[in-house]
């Protein structure tokens, strides 16, 4: 009945036979905010280093001249190009990405290699197109190229990601892990095997019902359980209890 597979942003990667990991690629909006945070941070770093440097120089009373300007340009270069490459290679994420709960991995799920980290960040010059000049010698990326590529690839990859074979993923917890679980022992519910064979997906749904039942009002629980009248054989509160018993059975006693 379902010809086309259901749409999902989650990507499955088979790392070994029968072992799957799930990558959750991140779209352009959280990444844009991560970029903004990193940009601010780099400006702050530049300003702080310059202040310290010039203070130190004036304190020592050294005449720097062209050497000072050279050092300044070198500093800019290192921060502009080194910041991303080093952060992403060493920690898998920049401070901005950390703040947004993101990190960078290869599409196979493994950490970045040096060439990949360098390549994906070199291509920021392309992804940042068109560049808007604000003030003298200062550019701001409108990043329409990167945005467009990310929107139209399945894993939200910009040009740099495509060429370096990398992907930006959500590295925070999935939601399920954070939800409270209904305390079955407190409610004195005994497990009950379901009356019919259930597919994996259906078993999963019944287990999720158990996991999340604590979040819903009594009315909503009843409403959901009433859909399964053919399975539980009852409705109303009794149906909810029956369903929770089956869920407990599936969780603890299923073969």
């Amino acid at each position: 009945m379902r010809a086309e597979p259901k749409l999902d942003t989650m990507q499955t990667v088979e790392v070994a036979e029968g072992v799957d990991i799930y990558l959750r690629p991140a779209g352009p909006i959280p990444r844009g905010f991560a970029y903004a945070i990193d940009l601010l941070l780099r400006w702050v770093i530049v300003v702080v280093v310059m202040l310290i440097g010039s203070l130190g120089i004036s304190f020592l009373g050294i005449e720097t001249g062209e050497f000072g300007i050279g050092m300044f340009l070198l500093l800019l270069f290192v921060i502009e190009w080194g910041y991303y490459v080093i952060c992403e290679k060493v920690w898998g994420r920049t401070p901005g990405k950390r703040a947004m709960g993101l990190s960078v991995v290869r599409t196979s799920g493994v950490p970045l290699s040096w060439p990949a980290a360098i390549l994906r960040n070199l291509l920021r010059s392309v992804d940042g197109l068109p560049w808007l000049s604000i003030g003298p010698q200062s550019l701001f990326p409108l990043a329409l190229v990167g945005l467009g590529t990310a929107l139209f690839t399945k894993k939200f990859q910009r040009m740099g990601d495509l060429l370096a074979d990398t992907v930006v993923i959500y590295s925070g917890k999935t939601v399920e892990a954070a939800l409270p679980v209904l305390n079955a022992a407190q409610n004195q519910i005994t497990p009950l095997p379901p009356a019919v064979a259930l597919s994996r997906e259906e078993q999963q749904a019944i287990l999720l019902f158990l996991e999340r039942a604590g979040l819903w009002s009594e009315g909503r629980k009843t409403e959901l359980a009433d859909h399964l009248k053919p399975l539980t054989g009852t409705s109303g509160h009794a149906g909810v209890i029956q369903l929770l018993r089956m869920a407990l059975w599936l969780r603890d006693s299923a073969p």
Binding site: L198, E201, E202, Q204, A205, L208, F209, R212, W216, R220, L224, H227, L228, K229, P230, L231
Partner: peptide, 12 residues
């Protein structure tokens, strides 16, 4: 629990 409802309805 909309995702659950969808599966439940299919099962029913």
């Amino acid at each position: 629990g909309w995702d659950i409802e969808v599966t439940f309805r299919g099962l029913a």
